[in-house]
């Protein structure tokens, strides 16, 4: 009996948090949903008067691909982000708090349009907000 129970308990312990951890990934609509949200965020941020200047030399498709992988991974999905770390990616840009928040508002609009529940939106923002430390200039 013990021989049977132990692996079952071990499996449950391993499986439960893994399942809980991927709820945000599900709420965002899995990889396809995240891709669409990031694409829409980029479409908005590239023309938003508050952020457009920062993206004027950026390749949108590449950025959308990288940010999609990054959010997919952070949300508990089966992706691996292979880009630069946040500090390296943004250090030369001199991003302000205002620009960072404007970008977050573009993301919020994209999530609203995609029908992501408000509580899930906040969960994603909770993951992204501390990145302000590495992306915003000091």
């Amino acid at each position: 009996m013990k021989k049977f129970l132990l692996p079952v308990i071990a499996f449950l312990i391993a499986a439960l948090p893994a399942h809980a951890d991927d709820s945000l990934y599900q709420a965002l609509g899995e990889k396809a949903g995240i891709q669409a949200i990031v694409q829409r965020t980029a479409d908005l941020a590239f023309v938003d008067p508050r952020t457009a200047e920062q993206f004027k030399n950026s390749k949108k498709d590449r950025l959308v691909g990288l940010v999609t992988d990054q959010i997919c991974e952070l949300a508990g999905g089966p992706c691996t982000y292979k880009g630069l770390n946040m500090k390296k990616a943004h250090i030369k840009l001199g991003i302000t708090q205002h620009e960072f928040n404007a970008f977050a508002e573009c993301l919020t609009q994209a999530m609203n349009e995609a029908g992501v529940p408000y509580r899930s939106q906040n969960k994603l923002l909770a993951i992204l907000a501390p990145m302000a430390r590495d992306t915003i200039e000091r």
Partner: peptide
């Protein structure tokens, strides 16, 4: 004085 109510989500 210190801390940031919005950005310090990981502490």
């Amino acid at each position: 004085l210190f801390g940031d109510a919005v950005y310090d989500q990981d502490t």
